[in-house]
Every structure is written in C-alpha cells, then in structure tokens.
Amino acid sequence: MYGLQAIAACNGWAMAFVGALIVFSGLVVLSLVISQLHKVLTFFEKKPVDFQQDRETPTVEQPEDKPGLLLPKQFPSDINEIVRLYKPLVEALGETFYLSKLYEILRKNNFPHPHITLTALRESEILIPDGDGVFTWNPPTEHDDNEKVEG
C-alpha cells in the first residue's frame, strides 16, 4: 500500500498531528516554567534573609499589629504626617541607627518611595548625621505633641 491510502491505513495523519502537538506543548510548558524559574528562586532566597532580619529587629516584626504602622491608602505628602508614620520604626532602631537599616525596614514594610522620603527627612533636618555613618532622629516638638494627642 502506498500514498495517501497507506498514510490513512496506518493512522499516519493522527500520529503526526498529535505527536507534533505533544512535543510542542511539552516544550512550551518547559519554556514557561524556566522563564519563571528565576522569580521562584528569588522568592525562596528572600525568605531566609527576611527571617534573619526579623530576628535582629524584633520590634518591627509584625508592623501590621501596631495601629501606628498601618499605611494609609494614599501615602501623605505632608512631612509631619510622614514623621508620625516613621516614628515607631525609628524608635525600634534605637537612639542612633544606620540609614541603610531604616531603608531596609521601610522597604520591608512596603513604605512607598523610601529613598525620596529619607532624602526629604534629611533635608528637613529630622534625620541628622551623627558621624561614623549613623543618624539620629530629631522630630519637631509639635509632632510629638500631635502623637500624644492621637495616642
């Protein structure tokens, strides 16, 4: 038997079509999986790092539990309001702290634009360099009063 008759008799069309479909779909799935592989690995790599950081800064381990750390839906542009939001985090770091440490905590707590905000706080002299790369927190007095009223 030859020609189209032979192909049909051996189920050739179906074998070719299904075979091509399987190999194609298999490699498509594999390519999709490996395209996400680095994201999955990054996700798992971050976990232990965060855990270690959490142990180092126990006071900010569960920011959601503290009403003062709940971020508003629209992050305030007013510096006084920003100071109020930052205060509990900064206090947890101690009297003097590294800016990078504060930056990490802000990022971990999903504060928007931490870099810009830190710059604004430095320019407002709320964050004051204390030499040797450490900073101190110097909020204006009226902010403390506001905090007491709200608290």
Binding site: M15, A16, G19, V23, G26, L27, S35, L37
Partner: peptide
C-alpha cells in the same frame, strides 16, 4: 536557554521535520 526561554520554541518547531517525514515514509510504503 535559561536566559532566553522563548528560544525553546524554535527547538520545538524544528521537530516538525520528524512528523512530515513520518507521513512521507508511510506514503512510500
């Protein structure tokens, strides 16, 4: 390949020669 997974599709496409030839070989008896 890991850096550019989309190129894997070309590896899949090139396998079509196998299935075309399967049909051709069957047609030749």
């Amino acid at each position: 390949l890991l850096a550019r997974p989309v190129l894997m599709l070309l590896g899949a496409a090139a396998q079509m020669g196998i299935f075309f030839t399967l049909i051709g070989a069957l047609a030749l008896g």
